[in-house]
Computed example of a mutant assay.
Amino acid sequence: MTDFTPGSTYHGFILRRKEHVADINSEVYLFEHEVLGTPALAIKNADPNKTFCFTFQTVPEDSTGVAHILEHSVLMGSKKYPIHDVFGEINKGGLTTFLNAMTGSDTTWYPFASRNTTEYFNIMDVYCDVVLNPLLPRSTFEQEGWHYHKESEDAPLQLQGVVLNEMKGAFSDPIRSIFHHIFGGLMPGSTYAHESGGDPSVIPDLSYEQFVEFHRKHYHPSNGILFFYGDADLEQELAAVQDNFLADYDGPGTKAEVVQGDDISEPVFIEDSYAVQPDSDLSGKT
């Protein structure tokens, strides 16, 4: 096994720090890509449940849910893997112990885990390609984000989309809706005043061009962080992401920044409301 030395470079990554953490019986390494500045955190131990994650700093500038829509959309095929449903294909006989993608308030995560070494490196290749080189056709944006829909010629015009419908369900919970407005009241002008998942009333304001531009701006490796865990060979992991993906970039990109917003210096009073079904009994409602 390689004796990693702080200050040395391994497959394009400079080892900045190395530490044994007894509580988890692991060697922990913090690398930085020498060209792109991409951090790579590795927790290496005897756990066969090998785990990889590529995370990006996806800072929303509004509540259109563009980061959430992109999370869905990149998994609809890439240049190397032009398949319609990446998760579905992986699940057709794979041995993964975890497979998901998640949108947070200011980050988007693409983690998976597998006990099989060959599968681990194969899916790592898929994950890196779909996030860095997605196809992102307009049809995917309309399916995963929003589009106009009519059941028949005489039916009323509707707005539909996977994320739009998902967030309609989320915002049907009064607590979710009210907390969104509380964050906006307590942190006005900040990143966290926006709903990164998408406010159903605002999602249709997002254009296809804005959607593509958000990916270009936020899905550069310089704006991401790599994570490795388990008993896979660390040199092989670093080589896989460097040789197959990061070597294609000739310079660093711009890192997204969280907007702090305005300070609150006095109590804030918020009056808010939430929707109920038509003709609902309002007695006892708060």
Score class of each variant (00 low, 15 high):
residue 1 M to Y: 03
residue 2 T to E: 12
residue 3 D to E: 13
residue 7 G to K: 13
residue 14 I to W: 11
residue 14 I to P: 01
residue 14 I to G: 09
residue 15 L to Q: 07
residue 17 R to V: 05
residue 25 N to T: 03
residue 29 Y to V: 01
residue 30 L to R: 08
residue 30 L to A: 08
residue 32 E to P: 08
residue 32 E to G: 10
residue 33 H to C: 01
residue 33 H to R: 09
residue 36 L to H: 05
residue 36 L to F: 01
residue 44 K to P: 00
residue 48 P to S: 06
residue 49 N to D: 15
residue 50 K to W: 02
residue 51 T to S: 12
residue 60 P to S: 10
residue 62 D to G: 13
residue 63 S to L: 06
residue 65 G to F: 02
residue 67 A to S: 15
residue 72 H to A: 02
residue 74 V to S: 07
residue 74 V to Y: 04
residue 82 P to S: 00
residue 85 D to A: 06
residue 87 F to M: 05
residue 87 F to W: 07
residue 88 G to I: 04
residue 98 F to H: 08
residue 98 F to T: 00
residue 99 L to I: 02
residue 107 T to P: 03
residue 108 T to D: 02
residue 109 W to K: 14
residue 110 Y to W: 00
residue 114 S to P: 04
residue 119 E to H: 09
residue 119 E to A: 07
residue 123 I to W: 02
residue 124 M to L: 11
residue 124 M to C: 06
residue 127 Y to C: 02
residue 132 L to E: 07
residue 132 L to S: 08
residue 134 P to T: 01
residue 138 R to P: 01
residue 140 T to E: 01
residue 141 F to S: 01
residue 141 F to K: 04
residue 146 W to A: 06
residue 147 H to R: 15
residue 148 Y to W: 12
residue 148 Y to M: 10
residue 149 H to Q: 14
residue 150 K to Q: 13
residue 152 S to E: 09
residue 154 D to E: 13
residue 157 L to T: 11
residue 160 Q to W: 06
residue 164 L to A: 09
residue 165 N to M: 04
residue 168 K to L: 09
residue 171 F to P: 11
residue 173 D to E: 11
residue 176 R to V: 07
residue 182 I to T: 05
residue 183 F to E: 06
residue 188 P to R: 03
residue 190 S to L: 11
residue 191 T to I: 10
residue 194 H to E: 08
residue 195 E to G: 05
residue 197 G to C: 04
residue 197 G to R: 04
residue 198 G to N: 10
residue 199 D to P: 08
residue 201 S to L: 14
residue 202 V to E: 13
residue 206 L to Q: 05
residue 209 E to I: 04
residue 209 E to Q: 12
residue 213 E to D: 15
residue 216 R to W: 00
residue 216 R to C: 00
residue 219 Y to E: 04
residue 223 N to A: 09
residue 225 I to K: 14
residue 226 L to F: 15
residue 228 F to G: 01
residue 231 D to N: 13
residue 233 D to W: 12
residue 234 L to N: 02
residue 235 E to D: 15
residue 248 D to S: 10
residue 248 D to R: 15
residue 250 D to K: 11
residue 251 G to K: 14
residue 253 G to F: 05
residue 256 A to E: 09
residue 265 S to D: 11
residue 266 E to N: 10
residue 268 V to S: 07
residue 270 I to A: 03
residue 273 S to Y: 10
residue 275 A to I: 02
residue 275 A to R: 07
residue 275 A to W: 02
residue 279 D to H: 09
residue 279 D to T: 00
residue 285 K to E: 01
residue 286 T to S: 13
residue 286 T to L: 12
